[in-house]
Amino acid sequence: MRTRQLTLLDRLLAEADTVLRTLHNRGQPASRQSPAAGHRDSTFSDSQRRHIAGLMRVNHTGEVCAQALYQGQALTAKLPEVREEMRDAAREEEDHLAWCVERLRELDSRPSHLNPAWYGLSFLLGAGAGAVGDKWSLGFVAATEERVCRHLKDHLKQLPIDDRKSQLILQQMLADEERHGENALAAGGADLPAPVKELMGAVSKLMTRSSYYL
């Protein structure tokens, strides 16, 4: 039986469905069990709980942005193997989304209200990077994952020492993100110019500060 090739319209409709699922926290269920499963929560003060929730909200927004970046890049990538690389990474990021949402609910909190805006910006950046060329698109992935890993390492230091559940989630996310960055470079990603990395850093700081509270 012949498999029908997806048209651009087919791909756009599929991406639109993913957008709605991501922003309404109704994405695909995690393919892997949460690293925090089976661990009991500790008792936190109100200020500790708010801080943990703020950190997890930032990480959730980071995963929303990652979904958008990968989807935008997969839409405009020129080589089929690069498109598949983006989709594979996006599938793992879906686990991260589910884990962060679950943790936020446990903390009686919610995702950032700014996620739709960050999603739109990230999608445009990803589509633009894919349109420029696959080596730059992959380089963009590597640079993005490098910055995400810095955030995760910093958040692991900020978490209360007895918040084992959040620690386990972020540790697994860190391992996945480091691998995504390595895979992007191994697939031919180019090192981005310093001004581009500086701009990415500025945007990342704005996202982090706003998502923590909003």
Rank of each mutant, 00 (worst) to 15 (best):
A129D: 07
R103H: 13
K153I: 10
L170R: 02
V148G: 01
L104P: 04
L159H: 04
H51D: 15
Q73T: 04
L159P: 10
K135S: 14
R105N: 08
V58W: 07
P111Q: 01
C100H: 05
R26Y: 12
L159R: 04
L13D: 02
T3Q: 09
G181M: 01
R105A: 10
E106V: 08
H60D: 01
V141I: 14
D163L: 06
T76W: 03
G38L: 03
T144L: 08
A186D: 04
S31R: 15
P29K: 07
R49Q: 12
H51T: 11
H113A: 13
S204Q: 13
K78A: 06
M56A: 01
G181F: 06
Q71Y: 08
F44H: 14
H180C: 10
R179E: 12
S137Q: 05
P29I: 09
A53W: 07
N25L: 12
Q67D: 11
L174A: 02
V82D: 00
E15H: 12
T3S: 04
V58S: 05
L156P: 01
L79T: 10
R103D: 02
A37M: 12
A37L: 14
G62H: 01
A186G: 04
L97R: 10
L138P: 04
I161Q: 14
L79E: 15
G27T: 00
P193F: 11
S42M: 14
A68P: 07
A202S: 12
L13Y: 11
E102F: 03
D41G: 15
A36E: 07
E178D: 09
A74N: 02
A184S: 08
Y212Q: 11
S31W: 15
P29Q: 08
A131F: 10
R49H: 05
F140W: 01
L9C: 02
L75C: 08
A98D: 08
E146D: 15
L97D: 05
A190C: 07
H180R: 02
Q71C: 08
R147L: 14
D154K: 11
E15N: 14
L23M: 06
S210N: 14
G120L: 14
A194R: 13
E178P: 00
T208P: 06
P29T: 08
D41P: 04
R164G: 15
L185F: 06
R209I: 15
E63Q: 06
K165I: 07
Q5G: 03
M86P: 03
R110A: 14
V101I: 15
R179Y: 10
G128P: 05
T7V: 00
T18M: 07
A202F: 13
L13F: 06
R21A: 11
E177K: 08
V64P: 05
L12F: 06
E84V: 08
R26E: 13
A129Y: 04
Y212W: 13
V141Q: 05
A16Y: 05
E94H: 07
A89T: 15
V132R: 13
L170Y: 01
R150K: 12
K157Y: 13
E102R: 13
L121K: 01
S166I: 03
A194P: 06
R147A: 15
D163M: 02
L156F: 09
Q71V: 03
W118I: 00
S47I: 12
S137G: 14
L20R: 12
L97Y: 00
R179M: 10
Q28H: 13
E177Q: 04
Y70W: 11
